[in-house]
């Protein structure tokens, strides 16, 4: 008998394993869910392009996932992905990056991609911190928290990114946590198979650069919290904003049809090319 090889190894770049995530980091869970989701829907990695930014979470697809991968500048993966998707509408283009990347420095690209409803799947790993740079406050850090750049306490409110993306016009928006692995996987499948701008906010843990500072040094500390704080969107009726702010609202926040950007762009091209042809034969 040959050596045991996991069936999903074909989807990862084995030659650069083991990965570099810290012990207990949520990035590994997200990679696992992602690879499973891709396999489950039978997506051929050759027909995918993964685009990421800069940060620990950006390493989930690049370099670990074996497809064409564009590891871009900090905050800009959605902009790069827009160019890829427009030129190759036949490819599934997935952006995976951190909360700082997608909602902080890159927030404007996020808003406008959602507004355009361009057919991208954006999986934002929200570990509530700038992990890679060592634990500085992020737009998503809960207020009151001490981080390395808010040593007294964070006086800013945490950004509800999924709500923003929904308002901006995305067709599919969901929020899950690294505790809810199976629904997350399913949600990723939905996101990648439907047309339009899909966004999943994945609440994740950074035990090393965040957990240690706030008294949650292990993955378990976070996962227990995610389990206890999570509340399904369909169970939130009648709850006040104040009550909701203490919870993590999980589930599908929106799922709707809106005209997709690239499809419309290519409609214009077809019309224009045809008009030129008609003129020629006139």
């Amino acid at each position: 008998m040959g050596e045991y090889r996991h069936r999903l190894m074909d989807y990862v770049r084995e030659e650069i394993m083991p990965h570099r995530f810290c012990v207990g980091c949520g990035c590994g869970t997200v990679l696992n869910a992602f690879v499973n989701a891709v396999e489950e829907i039978g997506l051929e990695p050759t027909k995918m392009v993964c685009v990421s930014g800069i940060g620990c979470s950006s390493w989930i697809p690049s370099p670990y996932f074996r497809s064409d991968t564009l590891h871009t500048t900090h905050g800009r993966p959605i902009a790069f992905a827009t160019g890829v998707k427009i030129m190759r509408p036949d490819l599934t283009v997935v952006v995976i990056a951190g909360d700082g990347d997608v909602s902080g420095i890159g927030g404007n690209h996020l808003i406008h991609a959602a507004r355009r409803n361009i057919d991208l799947s954006v999986f934002m790993v929200n570990n509530m911190i700038y992990g890679m740079t060592g634990g500085q406050v992020a737009p998503t850090t809960p207020s009151g928290t001490k981080t390395s750049t808010t040593p007294h306490r964070n006086i800013e409110p945490a950004f509800k990114v999924a709500d923003l993306v929904m308002t901006a016009g995305a067709t599919y928006v969901a929020r899950w946590t690294t505790y809810h692995v199976f629904p997350l996987m399913e949600s990723m499948q939905n996101a990648m198979t439907r047309k339009g701008f899909s966004f999943i906010e994945i609440i994740s843990q950074c035990p090393d650069n965040y957990g240690r500072r706030i008294g949650k040094p292990t993955a378990n500390d976070f996962l227990k919290q995610f389990r206890d704080d999570a509340i399904r969107i369909n169970k939130t009726e009648g709850m006040s904003e104040e009550q909701l702010d203490k919870r993590i609202v999980i589930g599908k926040l929106c799922d709707r049809e809106r005209p997709e950007y690239v499809t419309q762009l290519h409609e214009i091209i077809r019309e224009q090319v045809a008009a030129v042809k008609r003129e020629k034969t006139k």
């Binding site: 790069f80 224009q272 030129v276």
Partner: peptide, 29 residues
């Protein structure tokens, strides 16, 4: 551009514009 089968997009800023042309270049344009 659409008349010759190409695409043109007005991005949200110039940072995004360069990002998009790099992405498109790798996608073969």
């Amino acid at each position: 551009l659409p008349q010759v089968g190409g695409t043109c997009i007005q991005m949200e800023d110039e940072i995004a514009s360069v990002g998009a042309i790099i992405g498109a270049s790798w996608a073969g344009a």
